[in-house]
């Protein structure tokens, strides 16, 4: 049994080129993390919870229209704007690069939701409710959040903890891309993605497939990068631990040409 703690820095790479907008990640996240039901009236109130959401943008005019999808979730910023504004340390940075939310501390000032440029924080306006048929579906590893507090994507920290316990404490190994996938302990959205648009791994692990993207993005300016990687709102300097890969334009538009 390994006693010393292995230093992880979690990160995610999202290949926008592979995303088909199928929303499987949204459903997986909803089920894994006890996210309350998004009934139609919640949407009409504009208070739907989607820890990960697929933003859809249309390009061009009908009939030559392109749909663009981009999955957006908590970017787990290294320099998170939401953290310093919380008066009660309900949100802070842990030593694995995660931006964590402590539900018990939260008083619900909603300053963090204002100061999050990605709008990935969700306030519990009502007491969460599930239909009776779903009562036994709730994940016992995840807190059910009461009303009046903030919640957001955790990179499925419960799965990471289970992975640490099983793979590192008991078996004495090290978490890597392979054993996370084999044991199905990667975040729910990553596990559910049918096109593998989402990749998850440890930035400190030299063999991880996300590592080159982070190395490239951390050492080169956006123009000089060898990969397609970019961070959302990179100019804000949030130091996000999520990297997006640009869509590949198979037939790039020429000047003056319309979309098609």
């Amino acid at each position: 049994m390994a006693t010393e703690r292995i230093d992880h820095k979690w990160g995610m790479v999202i290949d926008v080129d592979r995303c088909t907008g199928c929303q499987a990640c949204v459903v997986a996240c909803q089920a894994e993390n006890n996210v309350p039901m998004n009934t139609p009236d919640r949407f009409l109130e504009r208070r739907a919870y989607e820890w990960i959401r697929i933003e859809r943008y249309w390009e061009g005019e009908f009939p030559k229209v392109k749909a663009r999808f981009i999955p957006i979730l908590c970017q787990h910023c290294g320099n998170a704007p939401c953290e310093p504004v919380c008066p009660v340390y309900a949100t802070y940075h842990n030593d694995q690069g995660l931006n964590v939310q402590v539900y018990n501390r939260c008083v619900g000032t909603r300053y963090c939701i204002n100061n999050c440029p990605y709008q990935v924080r969700f306030f519990n306006w009502w007491e969460p409710q599930w239909p009776n048929t779903l009562q036994n579906q709730l994940n016992p590893d995840v807190t059910v959040r009461s009303r009046g507090i903030m919640e957001k994507c955790t990179f499925c920290i419960q799965r990471l903890r289970r992975a640490e316990l099983a793979l590192e404490r008991q078996e004495g190994g090290r978490i890597n891309d392979q054993n996370l996938a084999e044991r199905n302990l990667a975040p729910a959205c990553v596990a559910a993605c049918p096109t593998s648009a989402l990749m998850f791994g440890d930035q400190n692990d030299p063999n991880s497939k996300i590592r080159p993207y982070f190395e490239d993005a951390n050492t080169h300016s956006e123009r000089e990068r060898k990969t397609r990687g970019y961070r959302l709102l990179e100019e804000m300097g949030t130091g996000a631990n999520v990297i997006y890969l640009k869509k590949v334009e198979q037939y790039p538009l020429k000047q003056g040409e319309s979309h098609g």
């Binding site: 109130e45 504009r46 306030f123 306006w125 009502w126």
Partner: peptide
Amino acid sequence: NRGLGVTGLNRPVAW
């Protein structure tokens, strides 16, 4: 008693 749902606040207009 009922929670802040009774207000018209939403996401992103939380204030």
